[in-house]
Each structure stands twice: as structure tokens, then as C-alpha cells.
């Protein structure tokens, strides 16, 4: 009886989480010229309009370039720091971890203001560079958390075996450690890309006038009214955010299958 109640409650929570998303996807195929009910038929017209909307395509390009650069820089910094924390006995490791996690603990608005004003003082105005620095700093903690969690599970035995067979530290790192670390590195990079791609809170503070990322473009479009194009864009983004991690997982499984045989 009690368990039935809990299950019923949980189902309601699942519906609560999925219903709005489902409605976005449903309405994006609406043939009506208004982004709302009632549905007048199924159509792809809003996706076609989307593909012809220059502002949105520009926003996509900006978001993807920004996300990729953020992922590369953030993952590089994060992997190096995680290696130090997991593989060496560093005095004050706990304090250092807390310092590196600090960007998550500071509200993003405050981080956004501080970075904007400080870099402006140094002569770096609102620009793509500022945007990139900002995205790197708030994705870094997530990369460190994800990479550290996976690094711990890599045994040192294999590396020691390679060394004892005459491999130099450099060879050991590039031929043994790095390949073993690859899933962690990819997971960290994917995480950083997704967070950067989705960010709006900091981005609205840092972006120069005229430059839009996908979320700020959607936000600007919302000011007028909710057009069917926004729903179509939402469906594309849902497909991307749901599809990318699944794709990543599939690739990881493929790799591990190959190395297993």
C-alpha cells in the first residue's frame, strides 16, 4: 500500500519533468502559424524556417565554437589538476580541491559581475575573449569533479609494469596512462561543452552587443512572443542534448569492446 503510493508519486514527478518538454516537441510540428494550441496539423515548416534563419544559424556557430574552445581549455586545465590531486601526495590537497571547486560555490551572477568589472579594468571589454574566460572558469570545477572520479579507478599497476619493462616516464604517460584516461577526458570535455552551450546567466553579462549564443538568442526571441520557431529550435536542442551523451556512451562502449578482445 505504502509502496503503491510512493510509486504513484514518483510517476507524477516523472510526468512533471517530461510534460513541458513533450509539449515543446509536439508544438514544433504544429502547422498553425501561432506557436500554440490548438494544433492544426503536422508540418516541418518551422524546421525549414529555422534552417533559413540567419540569426539563429549565427548563434549556433558562436555557441559551438565557444563550447569547443571552452571544452578544450577547461579539460586541459582540469585533467592536469586532477592528475596532480589523484596521483601525488600534495600537502593541503583538501584545501586545493576546495579552491578549485570554488567557482561552483559562488553564485554565477556574482562571478559574472566580478569577472566583467575586473577584466574591463584590465582593458578587456565585453568580447568573445571575456566570454571564453568566463565559460572556462565556471566549467572547470565540473571537469575536475568528473575527471577525478574516473582517474581514481585507474590502477597504477599497469604503469609500473610498463616502467619496469623499460618505458620512460614520457612513453608510459603517452602510451599507457593517456589511453586509459581517454574516457575520463572525453567525459570531462563533453560535460564542459554541454554546460557552456547551455549557459545564459553569465553569458548575458559577458557577451558583446550583436553577438548571440543559442540561449541568449532564444531569450531575445522570447521578448516578442513565443513563436513556433522557438519550439522547433527547442526540439533541435533537446535532440542534441539527449543525443550527444547517448552517442558518447555508445562510442565509449565500442572502444571498450574493441580493447576487450
Amino acid at each position: 500500500m505504502g509502496w503503491q503510493l510512493i510509486r504513484g508519486w514518483a510517476i507524477l514527478v516523472y510526468i512533471f519533468m517530461f510534460l513541458p518538454v513533450a509539449v515543446v516537441v509536439l508544438l514544433s510540428f504544429n502547422a498553425s502559424q501561432f506557436g500554440s494550441f490548438p494544433m492544426t496539423g503536422l508540418s516541418f515548416r518551422w524546421f525549414i524556417e529555422l534552417a533559413n534563419n540567419d540569426a539563429i544559424l549565427r548563434a549556433f556557430r558562436t555557441s559551438i565554437i565557444l563550447g569547443l574552445l571552452t571544452a578544450i581549455i577547461s579539460t586541459t586545465l582540469g585533467v592536469l589538476a586532477s592528475l596532480a590531486l589523484v596521483r601525488y601526495r600534495v600537502p593541503g590537497a583538501n584545501a586545493i580541491s576546495t579552491l578549485l571547486i570554488a567557482p561552483i560555490l559562488v553564485p554565477e551572477v556574482v562571478l559574472a559581475v566580478a569577472l566583467l568589472l575586473f577584466l574591463n579594468f584590465l582593458g578587456i571589454n565585453k568580447s568573445f575573449t571575456l566570454l571564453l574566460f568566463g565559460h572556462v572558469i565556471f566549467t572547470l570545477p565540473f571537469v575536475i569533479l568528473v575527471v577525478q572520479a574516473r582517474l581514481i579507478s585507474i590502477k597504477r599497476d599497469v604503469e609500473e609494469a610498463a616502467m619496469s619493462l623499460g618505458a620512460s616516464p614520457r612513453q608510459t604517460f603517452f602510451q599507457i596512462t593517456l589511453p586509459l584516461m581517454m574516457p575520463a577526458v572525453l567525459a570531462g570535455g563533453l560535460f564542459a561543452f554541454t554546460i557552456s552551450f547551455d549557459d545564459i546567466t553569465g553569458t548575458l553579462f559577458w557577451k558583446p552587443g550583436g553577438v548571440e549564443t543559442v540561449p541568449t538568442q532564444i531569450f531575445a526571441m522570447l521578448r516578442n512572443s513565443i513563436s513556433p520557431e522557438i519550439n522547433a529550435l527547442g526540439t533541435v536542442m533537446i535532440a542534441m542534448t539527449v543525443g550527444l551523451p547517448l552517442l558518447g556512451a555508445a562510442i565509449a562502449r565500442q572502444i571498450s569492446k574493441k580493447s576487450g578482445t
Partner: peptide
């Protein structure tokens, strides 16, 4: 380990802690 940590620590110091002191 300090060589490995320094890029990340520098980034956090330069882009978070110094800006917070600055504001």
C-alpha cells in the same frame, strides 16, 4: 604536482579570487 596544478590554480585565482577582491 605543483607544475600540473599551476594552470588551474592560476585560472581560478586570476578569474575568480582577484576579481572578487576587485569588486
Amino acid at each position: 604536482p605543483w607544475i600540473l596544478l599551476s594552470p588551474a590554480l592560476t585560472a581560478v585565482a586570476l578569474f575568480l579570487f582577484v576579481p572578487l577582491l576587485f569588486i
